[in-house]
Computed example of a mutant assay.
Amino acid sequence: MKWIKPSQYFLVFSLPLYLNFVQLALTAQAQLSQQNKTWQISQTFKPPKRGAPPASAGGSTRGGSCLADKKLITPLIPPNKLGLTLSQHPTFFWHLPESSVKTAKFLLLTDDDRTEFYTTSFTLPNRSGIVSFKLPDSAPALAIGKTYHWYFTILCDAQDSSENPIVDGWVERIQPELPLSQALAKANLQNLPSIYAEAGIWHEALTTLVQLRRSEPNNLKVRIDWRQFFKSVGLSAIAPSPVINCCTSKNSSSN
């Protein structure tokens, strides 16, 4: 009979315990890593699980005679046309083709389109690209939990509105939950777009991405994140377009 040395006994009986310990340690590490990735870096926009807004009263988009080759305005909004925001005065974005007319109108309605909340007009740029309009601080603040219907139109024909290209969408201001507020409080500009995109906060996700693109135009990661964000909402064709400084109210009114 061949005897086993005491050291071999120790190895035989301790090996399973060691492997079990290693497995427990790896599991705990994976769980901790997953917790730390609550707001992981991902530039894919994740729409929140919410009901779709009402159908547009007059369709979505139509072209106009004053647009080059009768191309269309493209609103930069999620596929369901509802953009969430945390801001009292969010920023709206559109992609515009070249136009022979330089005046556009923005209208914000509430109460099922029965009440004019805010309206303004502004001058358009001389070239095609992505433009934005920030609701000014002088405008009424969006109320938390309320949905607003906006319209954007280019005034091709002041006498016949049927010739004016128009797009519309909805915006709703929400109150951030505590984990989101804590993540935002710790984040820098480089992390903000992914935090907003992960939480489904459209207006701030795109606004911070635009800020990064303007401040770091040659940053490869910023350019990749930009393309990924647009691709995730079916707007890949818009991603190469320049971001143009526009637009400021020429006149405005509110309720």
Rank of each mutant, 00 (worst) to 15 (best):
4 I>D: 15
7 S>C: 04
7 S>G: 01
10 F>A: 14
15 L>V: 09
22 V>A: 14
25 A>R: 14
26 L>S: 12
29 Q>L: 14
33 S>N: 15
33 S>A: 15
36 N>C: 07
37 K>A: 15
41 I>T: 15
52 A>T: 10
55 A>Y: 12
62 R>C: 03
63 G>F: 13
65 S>W: 09
67 L>N: 10
69 D>H: 03
75 P>V: 02
85 T>V: 08
90 P>Q: 02
102 K>D: 11
104 A>M: 05
104 A>Y: 09
106 F>Y: 04
110 T>V: 00
112 D>G: 00
114 R>T: 00
117 F>T: 00
118 Y>W: 07
120 T>E: 05
124 L>S: 09
125 P>F: 03
126 N>P: 04
128 S>E: 15
133 F>E: 01
134 K>G: 10
135 L>F: 10
135 L>W: 02
138 S>N: 14
148 Y>L: 01
164 N>H: 03
171 V>P: 03
172 E>S: 00
174 I>T: 07
178 L>N: 11
180 L>D: 01
191 N>T: 07
193 P>K: 02
194 S>G: 09
195 I>H: 07
195 I>S: 05
195 I>V: 06
219 N>Q: 08
220 L>A: 12
220 L>I: 05
221 K>P: 05
222 V>Y: 13
223 R>Y: 06
224 I>W: 09
228 Q>N: 15
231 K>T: 07
232 S>I: 03
236 S>L: 10
239 A>P: 06
248 T>V: 12
249 S>W: 05
251 N>D: 13
253 S>E: 14
